[in-house]
């Protein structure tokens, strides 16, 4: 059981926060975890990206060059991540912000209207949770509940009123995948 996950999008979309959330949830489940913010020449034009490795065994190389799954928060990153994925990899895109269609035949492609769904829930900031819901549903790498527990522990008390909407967003992502799979 090992997932090498890359997240990418615009700066300001909460990419790094979302990656750290994944890492912390992995740690909560006592898995081996390594989170690496993008650190290289690809950090241009306001792009933001990070990688998270969640594994049942020891993590050697912390670099993710061929992710096993990826979440694209915008169009440009969807193009990049599709190229980077390893064969059989999973690409989840925020299809509210890109009309990208898959080019590669050897990957699994999921279109999730994350931003639209977040807006419907009353908070466009929770699009990342919709996408995370989709990721955990597709990969089974983490229990959805772990993500909520982490949010509870890292959000300051004054932001705890945001927990319910985040939880709903996570469930929204899960059911979006279920709908696709029927």
């Amino acid at each position: 059981m090992k997932q090498e996950i890359t997240l990418a999008g615009f700066g300001g979309q909460g990419i790094l926060f979302t990656g750290q959330l994944l890492g912390r949830a992995g740690m909560l489940e006592e898995k081996n975890v390594c989170y690496v913010p993008s650190y290289g020449p690809e950090m241009r034009g306001g792009m933001s990206s990070c990688s998270v490795i969640i594994s049942g065994s020891n993590i050697t190389c912390p670099l993710v060059t061929e992710p096993s799954s990826a979440i694209a928060f915008n169009h440009a990153s969807a193009e990049q991540l599709e190229q980077a994925l390893k064969p059989g990899g999973i690409l989840i895109i925020n299809s509210s912000l890109t009309d990208k269609e898959p080019q590669r035949k050897d990957i699994k492609f999921y279109k999730i209207t994350a931003s639209d769904r977040a807006v419907k829930l009353g908070n466009d900031r929770v699009a990342n949770m919709v996408l995370l819901g989709a990721l955990v549903k597709i990969t089974g790498i983490l229990k959805p509940d772990s993500l909520i527990k982490v949010l509870e522990s890292i959000l300051p008390e004054r932001k705890h009123h945001l927990l319910p909407v985040n939880k709903m967003a996570l469930e929204e992502g899960i059911s979006a995948v279920e709908a696709l799979e029927i």
């Binding site: 740690m27 975890v33 390594c34 989170y35 690496v36 913010p37």
Partner: peptide
Amino acid sequence: DGFLGQMMEP
């Protein structure tokens, strides 16, 4: 190095 400085692990 900067990589080790920025990466997060338990």
